[in-house]
Amino acid sequence: MSKNSGKGDKYENDLPQETRKQTFSEMIYDPRDGSFFGRTGKSWGQLLIFYTIFYIILAILFAICMQGLLATVDDFKPKWQLEESLIGTNPGLGFRPLSEQTERGSVIEFDNKKPAEINYWTGLLDDFLKDYKQTEGRNMKHCDYNQTHNPNDVCVVDENQFGPCSSANGYGYKVGKPCIFLKLNKIYGWVPKIYDAPTPNMPVELQYHLNHTSVIQRQNIWVSCNGHYGKDKEQFQDISYYPRQGFPTYYYPYLNQPGYLSPIVAVQFNNPPIGSMLDVECRAWAKNIIYSGSIRDRMGSVTFQFLMD
């Protein structure tokens, strides 16, 4: 009997014991082993020391990497420039006013008998030209073609030279002669190679203008606007450029000069069609500006639409 009894006790010890259920208070603090949330004070201390050392080492490694990266970055000029940069060497051409309402796209639509619609577009131009009006405290100079130009000079963009395309005249929208403003994107260190003589692929009007411009004043990135398609070219006539038909080269190169402002050209449409859409293409002309009129890959030009009722 004693032998059988011993074997029975042995088998009973091998059987899985029923797990004791913990109460909620014992999950927080278990008095049997003095643990908090399943860990003793020693275990919590070891865990805290481990993660403290881990995050200190991680922070040191991050600081070393950042210092190494910042050591290769210049505060005033990009590391990769021109051909080596993602931007490249072909500046894009933009226009204003451009609505912030994406559903409008590139369409400038207004009724010149409705002041609210006119004010919408003129307000956008006021915002665009805000920086050009606030020149106080900036180290700027009035540049000209016959002056010696220092690349670090910041030339003034004089809004008083925009003629009828000024804020005081409502940018021509109130009288049905709307203006748009053209601007080239900034590329650090880019220097234009100008056309100082007409080329056969230039519009006839631009060739005529270039031939009647003095040699010294031909130092421009020329611009021209025309109807985008055949039907638009038939309606496209009588436009004016202010202060000139191009961007003077003395504004270049852009070297991140403090207070630098990109040159702009105002284009006024003196006789736009009433009640029909006018599709316009404007193009920049320089020997190192590549042109492509492709819808998917447009370069060196910009298109927009006018619809005036």
Rank of each mutant, 00 (worst) to 15 (best):
E205M: 05
L278M: 09
V265I: 14
N271W: 04
G230T: 04
K231D: 07
P253W: 14
G176V: 11
A266C: 14
A197S: 15
M277Y: 12
E234I: 05
P192H: 12
T249Q: 15
Q268G: 10
S262P: 03
E234V: 05
I239W: 12
E234R: 05
L206S: 05
Q219V: 03
A284W: 07
R283V: 15
Q237H: 05
Q219K: 05
V204S: 11
T213E: 02
I239D: 13
P263C: 07
W222C: 01
I187M: 11
V265H: 11
K193E: 15
Y252H: 12
G189L: 10
Q257C: 13
P203Q: 11
K183S: 08
P248K: 02
G246S: 09
G259H: 03
C282N: 14
D232I: 00
I187R: 07
G176H: 04
N201W: 11
L206A: 07
F236C: 00
S240V: 02
R283S: 15
G176R: 07
L206V: 05
E281N: 06
G246H: 09
L206N: 09
H228G: 00
V223N: 01
N271Y: 04
K186N: 14
I194V: 15
S262G: 08
E205I: 04
T199I: 06
N201P: 05
D196W: 04
V215N: 05
I180Q: 11
Y229T: 06
Q235E: 10
N211P: 01
P263H: 12
L206H: 06
W285T: 11
E281L: 07
V204D: 10
G259R: 04
W222I: 01
I180E: 14
C282R: 14
K177M: 11
C282F: 15
F181K: 02
E234Y: 12
I264P: 07
K231T: 01
M202T: 08
K193L: 15
K174W: 09
M202S: 07
